[in-house]
Structure formats: C-alpha cells, structure tokens
Design a protein around this nucleic acid. Sequence first.
DNA 1: CTGTTAGCGCTTTCAA
DNA 2: TTGAAAGCGCTAACAG
Lengths: 328, 328
Amino acid sequence: MSKLTMKEIAKLANVSQATVSRVINGNKSVNEEAAKRVLKVIEEVGFIPNNAAQTLKRSHSNIIGVCVTETFNPYFVELIDTLELEARKRGYNILLHNSKHNPITEWESIQNFIARQVDGIILVPNGEYNIQRLNKLAIPTVIITKNRESLDSIGLDHMQAGKIAGENFIYAGHKKFGYIGTVPDEKYLGYKSVLYENGFELNSLINVKQTSTNNFLIQQDIEAYFNQADRLDFTCVFAANDIMALEFLKAAQKRGIRIPEDISLIGFDDTYLAKIMGISSIHQPIEEMVKTTIEILLNRIENEVSSEKINIQLAPTLIERKSSNFKR
Amino acid sequence: MSKLTMKEIAKLANVSQATVSRVINGNKSVNEEAAKRVLKVIEEVGFIPNNAAQTLKRSHSNIIGVCVTETFNPYFVELIDTLELEARKRGYNILLHNSKHNPITEWESIQNFIARQVDGIILVPNGEYNIQRLNKLAIPTVIITKNRESLDSIGLDHMQAGKIAGENFIYAGHKKFGYIGTVPDEKYLGYKSVLYENGFELNSLINVKQTSTNNFLIQQDIEAYFNQADRLDFTCVFAANDIMALEFLKAAQKRGIRIPEDISLIGFDDTYLAKIMGISSIHQPIEEMVKTTIEILLNRIENEVSSEKINIQLAPTLIERKSSNFKR
DNA sequence: CTGTTAGCGCTTTCAA
DNA sequence: TTGAAAGCGCTAACAG
C-alpha cells in the first residue's frame, strides 16, 4: 500500500507521471476526463504521495519545529495544542520536541529540525544558550513566551506580572511578602522592585530548584522550606507558576494554614490547576500569543520580509479567585 | 547554513561525495586521514544531512507516528513523554498527532503518517473506525491503552478495572452505586457486572457526553446531574477518569457533601490530579506499557517476525487514597 | 493540455 | 580505500 508511486498511478490511469503530479497539486491545466481517471485510481488504490520526495524536491517541508521546555506544566500542553491547531489551519504540521530545560537537548532538537527541513522554528528557550547559534542559522524562528531582542519574539511582560502581583498584595494591606520560584527571574525582579518602591521588602524566598520539574520535586522543595521555618514571616506569597502555587496551597492546608485568611496566594499561568483550586493567577493569553506567533513566522517563511526583528510584549492580567481575594 | 550539501563538504575536504556519506554513516572503510578531514569540515561549517533525502533513499525515516485521542488528560501527556523518551533511546523520533476523539481526524493523521514515511504507528484508537483500514495498510502498528485483536495491542484490562472498583465498594459495605462516565465502556460493563453478581445494581449513571473533552465541559455535565437530582441515591461512585473524579469531588464539596464520609470516590488513570486531591484511583502502568509497545513495534519494523498478533492485557491495581478509604 | 526530462541530496552498488 | 554513477519519488521547466 505504502509502496505505491506516481509511476504506477500513471500507468493505471494511462497518463504520464507528470499529469498525476498535476492533478494531485491541483494544477488547472489537465483534461477533465484524465483528471477524473487519475483521481479514481488514486482513490481505489489509496495512494498517498511520498512526502520525503516532495520535501526534497520543493526544498521545503511544511513542517514547523516546536521545542518547549517541559510538558509537565499544563500551560505548555495548552500552548502546544493551540500551536498545532493554528499551524494546521495554515497547512503546516508541527514537529514537537521537549528540551526538558536542558540546553544541550535544546540544541539537539534544533539540529533535528534542520535535518528534517523544517520551514521554521518556534522555541520556548532555556536561557540564552542557543539564541546566538540559532540566529546564525538564518532559519525563520520565533521565540514564544519570552522576549529575545536578537530574534522575533512574543511573550508576556514577566517583570510587569511580578509588579501586578506585588501591587495587588500591597493594595490589600499586606506588609510581609513571600515568593516561590527559581531565581533570578523577571517575575521575581518585578515583584521585588514594586515592594521596594513601596517601602517594603521581600521577607521570604521559597526556593524551587531549577531541576524541580514536576509536582513531586516542587513539593519536596516547598516541604523543605516549611520544615526548616518555625513560623511563616509573610502574609502573602506570589508563585512563579500554578504548580508551585498549588503545592504551596497543599503544604499550607496540611499545616492548618488558611488560604486566604492567613496567607494570600497568587499563581502564574492561569492554567486549569488554578481554576480547579480557586487560586488567583496571572493570565497568559495563549491564543493571542499563538496566533501572532504563527502570523509572524509564516510571514518570514513565505514573504521573506524585512530583517527588522519583531518583539512583542503582552500585558499580564490578574485573575482574582478566592486565594487572594481578602482584604486585611 | 542549511543549504549545505554533501557535495560542498566533499569539495572542501577534497574527497568524493560518497566518502563524505561513508564517514557520516560510520562506514569503516575510509582512510583515517580523509575521515578526519571530512569531520573537521563538517564541524566547521555546521553541516547537517538532509533527512528528506536520506528517507527517500533509504525508504525509511526512523520516525514513529503517534496518535492519541486527547492531550487534555495528563495521563496522555505522561504517556507521550515516556513514548518519546523510549523511542529516542532506540534512535527514533516521534511524530505526534491528536485526533481529539474524531475518527476522521484520526484517519487523516494516519494518512499523514504514511505520507511522512513513518516506520511504524502507535495509536490510542477512537473506537473501531480505522482499525480495519489500518490493518490493510500493512504498516507496523501497535494499539496502546486498549486491546484490538486484529492488531498488536497492549492495554489495561478495563473490564477488570471496573470490577476492582465495584468489589472495593462492596467490600467496604456500600449498597448503592453510582458511575460517572461516557457509556458504553468496558469499565462500566465490568463495574455493573460485579454489582449484579453480588445482588446489587447500578443506581445512578452520571452521564458525561462523548464531546465533553475538557474540565469545563465535564464540569457542566456533572453540574447538570446534580441540578436535576433532588438527592443522591448512591454512597459510592466510580469515575471513568481522574478528571471526572475531580470534577465530581468539586461539585460535591460545593454542596457540602463529604468525601468519603457521605460518598466514596474512585477515579481512573492515577494521574497527578488524583495524587494532588487525594483521590483513590486505578493505576495504569505507563512505563511498562510504553516499553513493551516500543519493543513490539521495533521488532515488527526491524525483524519482520511472525504475523501472529500480540495482545497483552495488563492488570489494573487500585491505589487507595482518602477518597474511598472509609468502611461503612 | 500533456509528455519528456532534469535534478532535489543522499546511499549504495560497482569498478578501479 | 575510493570515485563514478544510478536512482529513491517527486516537481517543474520546457517543448510540443
């Protein structure tokens, strides 16, 4: 079945191979009778053109390489899903890789993309490691969820997100502040800066290791914090993502700490985890981000426009749920 | 960068293109000096062989097509992740598709796999729609998570899973039983059969529409049930997956129904959702399933062994957590 | 409107 | 150990 070629189809339909190619590619200038015959044969034998040959010949593949840093976080799953959908609408498939926060794996993925002749790359980057190399490759690329000057990019303003969380807490009357996440990080910086500006400081940092990439490991980090702290010196806490927020919530509940009465909590990503648990969270507009990403990328691929880099920063918004909706 | 070919490498290294191919493919019979020269050039210019050409020539791609029914359920995310890892260990990439429970999309994915010259297919099927067609295609395929006689398959014994849930409830002293899910389904059948065998019956079915493929839609279905029922006529309930279990839990809590004191709850898949929420759940051994799947598939691809179909049914185990650990 | 033909970049005989 | 050359299946320019 899968060993059929246009040659056989041509023979069966009594036309040349070129004509078969024409009807498959919707070329108008084919006799209607002949076209019908070809289509019938294709249908009957279930012929599907060999994409490797097409790619080789056309020197493009209609594939977009997507590399994310993790799939454990449901935020990325939703991102991937949306990316796939929007790409498909435009006639492209996604080749998905997961760098698992490892720059070496990320680079291998990029090489694999090149080998597979992808027409463009969408990357959730791990730091700066491969940005310059990627730039030299001169393949259409857009960085998503974060901003990088040297390439096209679209991301949320993380600094601003940190500020919004901080402002919200300050406005609600908090005086003592906590942060959960891996530092340094722009959210962390933004959060801290707004605290300082208002005469406060960050009282506690619950450090999540960079290598803690699943619920269980994050839970361990948070438990470790709770176990070494005699009492909590903050009344509100901002978590770098919803998984961390959720694990904090669980650890707190386990110890009889009430959310939000004792401690207000804000997460990040606004995934369904936050929705399920009623955790306030900073929303990332996935659909807008993805649509714009595809737009920019296909423009680069298909129109080869200006070399001016595009860098878009989306504004974060806080979705308030019960975990922080409590004035002191 | 990406327009380099072996020809240029050959010229730069002062050898023939064939020799370049030889060193890339680790062919022994190449002069050591020459090989070193070639490697150096490749390194310098960052050459990566064109995979489309390789695939065309070799008539295999080292790609496995994987098509799942959804990615919303974290169970499938974990499945995909493990699949990717195990495949990569064996030198294969994954081409991932999501049929979103649509047999037409599923068939399109399969056709895309053929077009892309995948060496094999791993499928989480939607019913029976494409099983026969797939069989005719004569491409190595293994069905995962479910069993299909006409193809290689590995899955949990869903019937048995339903029985285990039912038995657990009966053993704990329950007399009135509920089920949440889309019916008919093997888990449902197994559950019901064990109830009948013990002189009980299914008192309530909370029907989740087949089209309810995310939290929100499932929530609506469950809310709809609660809203039309004056009182619950069961004291225990088995949910077809953890998402449903979770949404039931939320809907119950909202109404002051205590889990497990008023109603015992068992979910299915044993995802982190169940772990997070302390929901008892029937465990699916992902890693074992995936390893066996890859084993069977690569055996078919690389060794073209017997045409005897392999059908493996794994035994389900119940992981008891607080949602059902309560004797009446 | 249609067939012939020349490659796309690679692997792999075959001879040397 | 090596190079020349054929050809994987397809597209597209060209000639008719």
